[in-house]
Design a protein around this nucleic acid. Sequence first.
RNA 1: GGGCCCGUAGCCUAGCAUGGAUAGGGCGGCGGCCUUCGGAGCCGUAGGUCGAGGGUUCAAAUCCCUCCGGGCCCGCCA
Length: 639
Amino acid sequence: MGESARVGDPMLAVKAMVENTLRPVLGAAEIRFEVPPDPEMGDLAVPLHAAAKAAGASPQELAVKSSLSLEKDATLVESAKPVNGYVNVFLKTKAVADLLWEMTRTKQLTYGFSEKGTERFIVEHTSANPIHPLTVGHARNAIYGDTIARILRATGRQVETHFYIDDTGRQTAVAALGYKMVGDGEPRVKPDVWAGELYALTSALVEIDAAKRALSLKDEAKVEEAKAKIDEWVGVVAELAEKSPQLYELLSEKAKDIDLQREVASIIAGYERGEREVSRVVRQLVKLVLEGHRQTLSRSNINHDVFDYESDLLWEGDVDAVLSDVRSSKYAVGTGLSISFKCDNAAEDLGLKKLLNISPNYTIPDLVLTRSDGTTLYTTRDIAYSLRKLARASRVLNVVGVEQSLKQLQLKVVLYALGHPEALNQSHVAYEFVDVAGFQMSSRRGRLISFDSMLDQARDKAIPEVKKRNPSLSDEQVSRVAEAIGVAAIRFALAGIGANKRINFTWDRVLDFERNSGPYVLYTYARIRSILGKAQGHLVQDDKPDFELLTEKLEHRLIVLCSRLPETMRFAAETLRTEVVTEYVLRVCDIFNSYYAAVPVLKAETAELSSARLALVTIVEVCLGSVLGVLGITPLERM
RNA sequence: GGGCCCGUAGCCUAGCAUGGAUAGGGCGGCGGCCUUCGGAGCCGUAGGUCGAGGGUUCAAAUCCCUCCGGGCCCGCCA
């Protein structure tokens, strides 16, 4: 039990003891533990079907033998019953509680965490384009990525979180053009919101400008097409102008004398080359937007360790280096300046399909790395970026939308084929799309539902609730508490759904503060704090609570459940599934709330019983506090 | 056409990795609980062909096959 005690895992210690007892009965057979379907059946189950087969005995026979053997262990085992080829074990409440008490006392808010190891992870997430506010989709990415990073840290990994700033694409250039036209103005509203409007307006003006030039063409069809396009974008401009009239005035005035298409192209090219004036303007805008992103993220307890500029990869030669490697690769094919990579051939030759679990019938499409004018594409730059990440971590996780799966695969194939087997240490951690019912999001049309608006709505919903319950709080305290509740609601709602499931975003779902929600967990925690606060006055500090006194079923279940936190955390880390954590914490809260309603703690029959129950409440407090930390939710004393 | 993901009560969701014991929760519905520590709570109740069909197995929500429905990807966009 030395090892399991060291890592602070009571259930691991318990299992080790059970295994010791069973070993003589079961011989060399593998001993696996399951959780019985109903807590009434036991705390642990050991299936014996396989072992029975190997030993030529019946499962039930083995189960009976195992039970008898286990029941001799009077300190740990309350009872052991052979049922349907399983041994169902009830553990002694006291035995588990003693272990838990020791471990939670020493680990405090890091109970459930593994000791820090040497494995180095990079988790890249959020990585939004620096031209508009973060949306509900980014919210999912950021919350998923951040929670994964926290889970990995909790299980002993060193984790660095990275935000990749895609600042060299066409979109940024369009926004930068607008920025230049309005004269590097300082925004009056939140900078990313302002930039989003600027981008949408400029983009529409660029579209109209381009279409107007097509009007003089001879081709009838093209002219018609251009007319339609103008109509469409004029409509968009009208809509946007209504929202931000001053910006519209300023931009449309300037736009008259400028060939917008050309301007955009020149910004793209100039920025890629790192020309001083262009770079100054673009970087200034990007930094403004990024500041807005950071505000939003920081509101929701998300803080990246490192921000990587895509443009740096161009300026510092990383991309050129990749291209030169590509050119000398036998998988590179090209016409003129355009280069493509034969991903399928490479994968076949190098046995990558088997390695990456790709169907042998599937033909991986070629990847285009440069345009015919020699400029690079997004994935090309991403190859260079991956090398940077892989150089400083043993595992790289890219939290990227599932729609990028093919690109992420091609990226890996190219890296591997260029002689970087460490590419296999990089994984695409995909998440599904967030739909907003009846709403077509479009950053080019300035139509989006922002991460901030989610946080705002959640906070605003919480404010009257907090006031109602805490009339003595100042407005500032109220808004601080309400903000935390809102963040909890949103983080919990998004982390609680498996990443491979599409989310149909609706306000009522995100703003549900009841039973299965972040606020519900916070509420449970606040109740615990409230009890513990009251206990300080009239109960002596008891260093050695007598857990023998805890005879309630709910007490037993709470203790066993809390002892499962470390293994739950490890499971979440292995599978990269945040919902494992939310599901777990909800079960803890459910049982605690039932307990709270059914059993008095402070007013227990005797002081000794009260002390033992307070110790239990403290254990649950530590357990919840620990999980809240992993979910990025700020615990509250009152709410 | 090819590849990947999803399909569990009116709605949302867990369980699928390692097949096994009555498929867990929540919202909404209905009925209760304010003389015990915070009612954002507790207790009870109704509601399920686990998309359909076949197969493997003593045993399938879980593994295999086919089909149906939804989504994404297969751009010199990102």
